[in-house]
């Protein structure tokens, strides 16, 4: 069998039953599985690792996880400006510290104003920094296992606005700009609903419908949704990506997925298929 790559773009992907069923089936057949963790929210990586440990418990050695930093760490990017990354002078600030079994949190306050929050792992490695203005979250710098900034996420009114992916030299390689956009998803049956919307509410009949009782031909269901989309800006070679799925395609290509058996979440099948025409894609 060809090498297998699972694309994971969010924690919700991993929580689907299909993910664990397919992963376990492959591991039971001793098939090595590579997971591309392409979640732009790197903070979810720790939770992902915990979930994966429970799923791949039978044969963890067969599973390798690669994230976007691993793929692009050595690509040449653009230097960050001084203003891009927030910094707080800790001199004369009040420091508050809390240690639990899993992490240590250190807060820096100016009077009653929270300015920075540092999160350390149990082994005292800096995991991520939160920066605040007027007590509102404005930036998160994720450090990860590399012990260097990997991503910088900027927030507006505590909503994610953009995420910057850095390389091993701390240069900017990709900027992912988040937008909310109303979309309509229009489909004509329960099977199409399963592919088209994450939680199809179309009633499902247990009995096979008879010829005379099926829905009138041409009946469409319209679902209005607020879609989150990411625009991608390339600081490596100015590639014009047509959205985040086109970027996932590129990341998979860099990972060598052309010769691999690719598994994607069924809820993203339509979008991923569109950027990978004529390629056989498996769904979980």
């Amino acid at each position: 069998m060809k090498p297998v790559i699972f694309l994971v773009t969010a924690l919700t992907d991993v929580k689907q039953d299909g993910f664990s069923v397919k992963l376990r089936a492959l591991l039971e057949q001793q098939v090595p599985v590579q997971i591309l963790f392409a979640d732009l929210n790197f903070l979810e990586r720790a939770t992902f690792d915990q979930l994966l440990a429970t799923l791949a418990v039978t044969n963890p050695a067969l599973v390798t996880v690669t994230d976007l930093f691993d793929i692009f760490a050595n690509d040449q990017g653009s230097p960050l400006s001084e203003r891009t990354r927030m910094r707080v002078d800790h001199t004369n600030l009040t420091v508050r510290r809390h240690t639990s079994a899993t992490e240590t949190v250190v807060r820096y306050l100016y009077d009653d104003q929270l300015l920075e929050e540092q999160h350390f792992t149990a082994d005292q490695q800096l995991s991520y920094q939160n920066f605040y203005q007027d007590n509102l979250l404005t930036q998160v710098v994720f450090w990860g296992k590399q012990q260097r900034p990997v991503t910088i996420s900027n927030f507006q009114a505590e909503a994610l606005k953009e995420t910057l992916l850095l390389n091993a030299q701390g240069e900017l390689v990709y900027r992912f700009m988040r937008e909310e956009q109303p979309v309509q998803k229009i489909f004509n049956g329960k099977d199409a609903a399963t592919l088209q919307v994450a939680d199809p509410a179309t009633p499902q009949s247990e009995a096979l419908p008879s010829k005379k009782s099926r829905e009138p031909a041409g009946t469409l269901t319209v679902r209005n949704e607020q879609a989150t989309i990411f625009k991608v800006m390339d600081y490596v070679d100015a590639t014009d990506f047509n959205g985040i799925y086109d970027f996932y395609r590129y990341a998979l290509k860099r990972l060598g997925a052309a010769d691999a058996r690719l598994y994607v979440s069924v809820s993203q099948n339509v979008e991923m298929s569109a950027v990978l025409p004529n390629q056989l894609i498996f769904n979980y």
């Binding site: 299909g18 069924v266 099948n269 298929s273 569109a274 990978l276 025409p277 004529n278 390629q279 056989l280 894609i281 498996f282 769904n283 979980y284």
Partner: peptide, 8 residues
């Protein structure tokens, strides 16, 4: 198998 293929 829940495999898919898109043809433009």
């Amino acid at each position: 198998a829940k495999a898919s293929r898109l043809v433009p």
